[in-house]
Structure formats: structure tokens, C-alpha cells
């Protein structure tokens, strides 16, 4: 049988500090994207100077009717119709992201396996 590991006993203050630490980590990661850049926003297409009309927006009468039922006139609808997402891919950022995700899982599975062998050795004895 493997030598049984006796864990340290944690004080109340230690428990409190550990709980707070993980919370601080969460808040920091929530605010990081704000510091880096704002994202998830749509870009409005370069608008025409002229006031938009349903004809200039190229919508059919039925579609126009549904916009109007929703309380939108041509000018208000133009803002939504003209908004576009930008799906340009930055290859370097993509590679970094892939490396981070793959690295995270590889690290986690490897360390977990090492810890798991300790657990199994204590539970079932050395092989």
C-alpha cells in the first residue's frame, strides 16, 4: 500500500483568502477584454448622405410592411440594415488562440494524470 498522504489543515482565514482569490481572478478576466479592445460590435456601412427610403434600402412591400408593424420607418431601419459584422481573420491571433486552448488541455490532462496515479496508488495500493 502506498504511503497515505495527510493533507494540511486549512485555517478559516486561509479558506476565506482562497475564496476571494478565485473571485478576483474572475473579475479580472471579465475586465481584460475591455482593456484590450471592445468587441462583438457591428460596423455600420458607410452611409449615404441622402435620407434613406424603402426603395433605396431595396426592400419588398411585404418586408416594408413588417418593418412598419415593428414601428420602424426607413430611416430607423437603415441603421439595422446597414450594420455588418467584420469576419476578417488575423492568422497570428488565430494561431495564438489555438496554441493557448490546445496547450491548456494538454497541460491539464498531463497534470491530472500524474495526480490521478497518486489517488489510485493510495486507493488500490502500488501495482
Amino acid at each position: 500500500m502506498a504511503k497515505r498522504y495527510t493533507p494540511k489543515k486549512q485555517s478559516g482565514i486561509g479558506q476565506f483568502i482562497d475564496s476571494i482569490f478565485i473571485l478576483i481572478l474572475v473579475y479580472v478576466s471579465l475586465y481584460i477584454p475591455l482593456l484590450l479592445k471592445s468587441e462583438g460590435t457591428e460596423e455600420a456601412a458607410a452611409g449615404e448622405a441622402a435620407k434613406p427610403t424603402w426603395a433605396s434600402l431595396d426592400v419588398t412591400p411585404v418586408v416594408q410592411q413588417q418593418w412598419e408593424k415593428l414601428g420602424y420607418d426607413a430611416e430607423k431601419a437603415a441603421g439595422l440594415i446597414g450594420s455588418k459584422f467584420d469576419y476578417t481573420i488575423d492568422p497570428m491571433m488565430l494561431l495564438i488562440t489555438i496554441a493557448v486552448i490546445v496547450g491548456y488541455f494538454v497541460f491539464m490532462v498531463k497534470i491530472s494524470d500524474r495526480q490521478y496515479r497518486e489517488v489510485i496508488a493510495e486507493k488500490f495500493g502500488e501495482k
Binding site: D18, S29, F107
Partner: peptide, 28 residues
């Protein structure tokens, strides 16, 4: 993309913290 990296950074930092700090309190 930025949120994705920030969230991954959180889980990586938490994993390192668990391995070197919390795991000492765990009964195997």
C-alpha cells in the same frame, strides 16, 4: 477573440493555483 483569450487565461491561472496551492489540502 479577446474574451476567449481572457477566459482561457482565467482557467490557466486557476489551474496553476490549484496545482501549487490548493492540492496540498486534498486527501488523495
Amino acid at each position: 477573440g479577446a474574451s476567449l483569450l481572457a477566459i482561457m487565461a482565467f482557467y490557466i491561472a486557476a489551474s496553476v493555483w490549484f496545482t501549487f496551492r490548493r492540492y496540498q489540502f486534498v486527501k488523495r
